[in-house]
Simulated scan of single mutants.
Amino acid sequence: MCCHKSYKDTPLSRRKLMTGLGIIGLSTSLTLTTSALAQVKTPFGTPLPGELDSCPVCGMFPERYPDWIATVLYEDGHADHFDGAKDMFKYLLDMEKFAKGRSRDQIAKVGVTDYYATERIDATKALYVIGSDVLGPMGHDLIPHPDEYDAKEFTKDHLGRRTLTFSEITMDLLLALDKGEFLVK
């Protein structure tokens, strides 16, 4: 007869210890995964918003609207996320109000979500269609496209009224969109 104690006789058996460590490891990895998710970057290089990130313009949670996310990424790694291009442009056009202590020369990248591919693209190179039958989370919005072909197809399919470049967007145009007006030439 063996004189070794059975694992069942010890208060903390190897099996219990390993099971406990496994549970602790799993919960730690889930916590790390959740916080690390906010660090994940899109192919364009802007980070994804976390569940607690809110739009600095309207207060909505961009993570809830993945097809509409826009992001301003600063050189120091800080990112502000928006629930659509319209709020992102309001932010950029009035940084004194929405981004205290920040300036345009600190911005590394500005990304918007392409309507058809739902992938982040360079906001400065995108084309924006207004006046269509597609509404964003905040109503009438600027609908981003990576090129003229997509913008024309969208305009045809969704009754768009005007296509704009990044530099053509003004605060007056954005405020008119809020009222359902499109300032069409």
Score class of each variant (00 low, 15 high):
residue 101 G to P: 05
residue 61 F to E: 12
residue 11 P to A: 11
residue 110 V to R: 06
residue 79 A to R: 03
residue 18 M to W: 12
residue 65 Y to S: 04
residue 29 S to Y: 14
residue 88 M to A: 10
residue 80 D to G: 02
residue 68 W to Q: 06
residue 122 D to K: 09
residue 84 G to W: 03
residue 22 G to D: 08
residue 50 G to W: 10
residue 115 Y to W: 14
residue 98 F to Q: 02
residue 52 L to M: 07
residue 82 F to T: 01
residue 27 S to D: 13
residue 85 A to M: 07
residue 20 G to Q: 03
residue 107 I to A: 02
residue 60 M to K: 04
residue 114 D to T: 04
residue 31 T to P: 12
residue 84 G to A: 05
residue 55 C to G: 01
residue 120 R to L: 11
residue 23 I to A: 13
residue 114 D to S: 11
residue 100 K to I: 14
residue 88 M to L: 15
residue 119 E to N: 15
residue 58 C to A: 02
residue 65 Y to T: 10
residue 20 G to T: 14
residue 122 D to W: 00
residue 53 D to T: 11
residue 57 V to R: 01
residue 60 M to F: 08
residue 25 G to V: 03
residue 69 I to N: 00
residue 15 R to F: 03
residue 84 G to Y: 03
residue 35 S to M: 12
residue 35 S to P: 09
residue 97 K to N: 07
residue 69 I to G: 00
residue 114 D to A: 11
residue 45 G to H: 09
residue 106 Q to M: 05
residue 18 M to C: 13
residue 113 T to M: 03
residue 45 G to K: 11
residue 85 A to F: 06
residue 17 L to Q: 12
residue 103 S to N: 04
residue 11 P to M: 11
residue 63 E to R: 01
residue 63 E to W: 10
residue 43 P to C: 07
residue 128 Y to N: 00
residue 111 G to A: 07
residue 29 S to I: 15
residue 112 V to N: 02
residue 78 H to Q: 14
residue 116 Y to S: 11
residue 40 V to Y: 12
residue 84 G to H: 00
residue 118 T to P: 08
residue 111 G to I: 09
residue 62 P to A: 02
residue 87 D to A: 00
residue 71 T to M: 01
residue 129 V to K: 02
residue 25 G to H: 02
residue 121 I to G: 11
residue 54 S to H: 05
residue 53 D to C: 07
